[in-house]
C-alpha cells in the first residue's frame, strides 16, 4: 500500500483555547451511535459549539473568518479521556489536516498518526504567538513542517516537535501500519506458537 509522505501541512489555522480538552468534548458519546465514521465532522465539538436548540454558541469554529482552516491549535493534554477514534476522525472529517498543542494524550496521538494527521507539540508561548497572528489575520498561511519540526506563519517561525516514531512514519509514508504488520504475519504466527496460551 503506497501511502502519502506527509512532510508538511499548509493551510489556515484556528485556535481553540483550553487545556485537558477530552475526547468526550471533541465528539460527544451520543454521536458514536454509528457504524461508519462518515458524517462525524459536523458533530465536532458539538456541545460547546451549539445550544440545546441547535443555534450557535460563541466558539472559534463557528466564526466565518476561520472557516476552511486545516490546522487546529489548542492547549495542554489535548485529546485526553476515551480512546474513541471517533474524535480524530471527527477532526479529520471536519477538514483539519494537522493538530498543534502543548502536548497530547497518548492514545489520541497514536490514533491521529495512524490517520496520517500529524500532531505537533509547541510551547505555550509559541502557540500563543501563532494564535495572535491568526487572530490578526485569519488568512495567514500556517505551515506545520513535520520533517523540519517547525511551524511557519507569515514571516515568523517557531520550533515544534513531532515524536521520532510518528515523524518517521509520516514523512516516509508509513503512518498506516497495516502493510508492515501484514508482512510480519509469518513471524507473528511463529511467536504465537511459542506461547502456550496461544499455541494451536
Amino acid at each position: 500500500m503506497a501511502l502519502a509522505k506527509i512532510t508538511q501541512i499548509a493551510g489556515r489555522g484556528v485556535y481553540v483555547p483550553g487545556n485537558d480538552i477530552d475526547t468526550d468534548r471533541i465528539i460527544p458519546a451520543r454521536f458514536m451511535k454509528c457504524v461508519t465514521f462518515d458524517g462525524l465532522g459536523e458533530f465536532l465539538f458539538y456541545d460547546v459549539r451549539k445550544n440545546a436548540d441547535g443555534t450557535d454558541r460563541a466558539h472559534p469554529l463557528n466564526e466565518a473568518r476561520f472557516k476552511g482552516a486545516t490546522v487546529l491549535l489548542s492547549g495542554a493534554n489535548f485529546g485526553c479521556g476515551s480512546s474513541r477514534e471517533h474524535a480524530p476522525q471527527a477532526i479529520q472529517k471536519y477538514g483539519f489536516r494537522a493538530v498543534v498543542a502543548e502536548n497530547f494524550a497518548e492514545i489520541f496521538f497514536g490514533n491521529c498518526t495512524t490517520l496520517g494527521m500529524p500532531c505537533a507539540t509547541a510551547s505555550r508561548a509559541d502557540i500563543a504567538k501563532i494564535a495572535a497572528a491568526i487572530e490578526k489575520n485569519p488568512q495567514i498561511e500556517v505551515v506545520v513542517d513535520v520533517a523540519q519540526q517547525e511551524i511557519r506563519f507569515g514571516d515568523q517561525s517557531v520550533k515544534a516537535e513531532v515524536r521520532a516514531a510518528a515523524r518517521d512514519a509520516l514523512v516516509n509514508g508509513r503512518w498506516d501500519a497495516i502493510g508492515e504488520l501484514l508482512d510480519g504475519m509469518t513471524a507473528m504466527k511463529a511467536k504465537a506458537q511459542g506461547l502456550p496460551y496461544l499455541a494451536a
Binding site: 458514536m32 451511535k33 454509528c34 457504524v35 461508519t36 465514521f37 480512546s83 474513541r84 477514534e85 521520532a164 516514531a165 510518528a166 518517521d168 512514519a169 516516509n172 508509513r174 501500519a177 508492515e180 504488520l181 510480519g184 513471524a187 507473528m188 511467536k191 504465537a192 506461547l195 496460551y197 496461544l198
Partner: peptide, 26 residues
C-alpha cells in the same frame, strides 16, 4: 515482540482481543 518496524516501533503480538459494539463496526 514479533519484530521491530521501520519506524522503530515494535510489532507486538496481541494474545487476547476484546471487542464491543461501539468501536468495532468501522
Amino acid at each position: 515482540s514479533v519484530r521491530t518496524l521501520a519506524n522503530g516501533q515494535t510489532q507486538l503480538l496481541i494474545g487476547t482481543h476484546l471487542i464491543h459494539e461501539v468501536t468495532s463496526p468501522q
